[in-house]
Simulated scan of single mutants.
Amino acid sequence: MTQPLPALLCFGEVLTDMIIQPDGRWLSRPGGAPWNVARILAGWGLPAAFAGAISRDCFGEALLAASAEAGLDLRYIQPVDASPLLAMVYSTQPPQYFFVGDHSADLHFDAANLPPGWPQAARWALFGGISLARPPLAGHLLAQARQLKAAGVRLAYDPNFRVAMDARYDAMLRQMVALADVVKVSDEDLAGLFRHHDQAAALATLQQWNPQALILYTCGAAGAQLWAGTQRLQLAPPPVAVVDTVGAGDASMAGLLASLWQAPQAALAQHLAAAVASGSAACGVAGAAVPLRSAVDALCQRLLPQVAVMA
Rank of each mutant, 00 (worst) to 15 (best):
Q270G: 10
P211Q: 09
V285N: 14
T218S: 15
P237C: 01
Q212V: 06
G279V: 08
Q270E: 13
L235W: 04
Y217D: 03
A228T: 09
L304I: 00
Q225Y: 10
C219G: 15
Q270D: 15
A263W: 07
G249V: 11
R293H: 14
S280Q: 01
S294F: 05
A258D: 02
A281I: 11
L214W: 04
V243A: 13
V246P: 05
G284V: 06
L272W: 07
S259A: 13
L292V: 04
T230L: 06
A275N: 13
A295N: 09
P291F: 03
A269D: 12
L233F: 06
P264S: 04
Q301D: 15
T245I: 12
L214T: 03
S278H: 07
A263H: 06
V296I: 04
G255E: 05
Q208P: 01
Q262Y: 06
L272D: 07
L214D: 02
T230W: 03
L233W: 03
S294L: 05
G279C: 07
D297G: 02
A236W: 00
G287S: 10
A248Q: 10
G247W: 11
G287E: 10
A298T: 14
A269K: 05
L226I: 13
L226P: 07
A289C: 10
L216I: 04
A282Q: 15
Q208F: 00
T230F: 02
S280T: 00
R232F: 08
P238M: 01
Q262N: 08
V242E: 06
A286M: 14
A273M: 05
A274S: 15
S278G: 13
A274E: 11
Q301C: 11
P237V: 01
A241L: 14
T218H: 06
P291N: 07
I215Q: 09
A269P: 07
Q231K: 14
Q208E: 07
G220E: 07
L303K: 02
Q212S: 13
Q208G: 03
T245Y: 10
A275I: 10
P237K: 00
S280H: 01
C283G: 04
A281M: 11
V240S: 01
